[in-house]
Design a protein around this nucleic acid. Structure first.
Lengths: 216, 216
DNA sequence: TAATTTTCTGACTGAACGGTCAACATCAGG
DNA sequence: CCTGATGTTGACCGTTCAGTCAGAAAATTA
């Protein structure tokens, strides 16, 4: 993403205890605010208040609003790509994809703000993340698409354009985080709030996906 | 949504030619801007420039930024719910759902901004649309979920929680509009730009969905 | 504990924003 | 072609925002 520590920057030698604590508090608060309002809609004052500190103090750690945003995206990106990276081409598709889908659904339940942060950024054209999408994300998708293609060639999966299969998994799982408000409005509860709803979601996703792609 | 014409309001008698023209230009421009930046991120000046008129003139037609936003949401909502409303409980599931999915995918290709407008609004907690979601959207989903439940009971569809099946269709189809930037970054083209990509998307969605839910 | 560095804050600045207003321009109907 | 209604604009206002700064308070080091 970038030099990561655009913070007190300069050429600071060691990160002090207070620095580490406060930067974390700021990033937690920033995730909350940015995932609710997007970059332009969020204000530094909001983030400062959520982090429980004054605005000048926040700006002492991150000189500019953009630096906070980039730092949050950076920190979140790792968790984001890890599960897909774990997909093992030498494993069996049902087990591997099942584990992946399970992890993604759990992330939608437990870390919905991260999902929404990326969603807003991407929907708005990924002005800050474009480079990463074209490099890191593209690379890992191409890599794992190869694994899917091999499974298809081996007759272990139905014929689907591999990249699109990955997109569909993202779509189905992340929908429960990103559109939680809508889901709650319609059925009364989201997957974060109700174990029953989570179970229904998991059942629907795996049912459709596995019947859809596993050999009959 | 509301009285629709919060515009020149007062108790205007008839809408003049210029009024009709300009309100349409404004709403087109507003859709473009709001779908890219969200409500808080968009500025009235941006919309005015996109509509090719001065800010005071724009505010002559819509007194407040919120009024423009609500008007755009209103206008878009109709197109949004129509395809689902057309789903015929007395038809055959494959034909009905197939037509619905086709319409939704075509909308993602031809009207991606509408999709993104709703996506941003919902992701941010639907502050302006909550009422509509809880009434109109909920009602139509419950209605159509009944149709799906009947098909399932008749053995014409696999057992899936009907509301979740609808969510999955939304997720899979709208993903191609909302996350177009991401898809382009990964495979080089989106469904609006390339007929091949659209065909791949359609194939993936229908393949997964129909194998996933139709009786074997 | 004295010196030094790090952390924190109130008060501020210039720019951007939403919205107003008085006056000017254009239009449609008689 | 005159007149009232509709449409349009530059200049402006109060507020909010990102970011600055001089210096006070707290922590660290010696």
């Amino acid at each position: 993403m970038q030099a990561e520590n655009t913070a007190r920057a300069s050429q600071s030698k060691k990160r002090t205890r207070i620095q580490i604590e406060n930067e974390e508090r700021i990033l937690d608060a920033a995730l909350d605010v940015f995932s609710s309002y997007g970059f332009r809609g969020a204000t530094v004052d909001q983030i400062a208040e959520a982090a429980g500190m004054s605005k000048p103090n926040l700006l002492y750690y991150f000189r500019r609003k953009q630096d906070i945003y980039i730092a949050v995206l950076s920190r979140t990106l790792e968790n984001w790509l890890t599960p897909l990276g774990d997909l093992d081409p030498d494993g069996e598709p049902e087990a591997e994809i099942g584990r992946y889908v399970g992890q993604k659904l759990a992330m939608s339940r437990d870390k919905p703000m991260e999902s929404r942060l990326f969603a807003i950024e991407v929907i708005q054209g990924a002005p800050m993340m474009m480079d990463l999408l074209r490099t890191d994300l593209r690379a890992i998708v191409e890599d794992k698409a190869g694994a899917l293609a091999a499974w298809i060639a081996a007759g272990k999966l139905a014929k689907v354009e591999p990249a699109h299969l990955i997109f569909m998994i993202w779509a189905m799982t992340q929908h429960y985080a990103d559109f939680d408000t809508q889901i709650q409005s319609v059925i009364g509860s989201g997957i974060s709030g109700s174990p029953d709803t989570f179970a229904d979601a998991e059942q629907a996703v795996t049912q459709i996906l596995f019947r859809g792609i596993l050999p009959r």
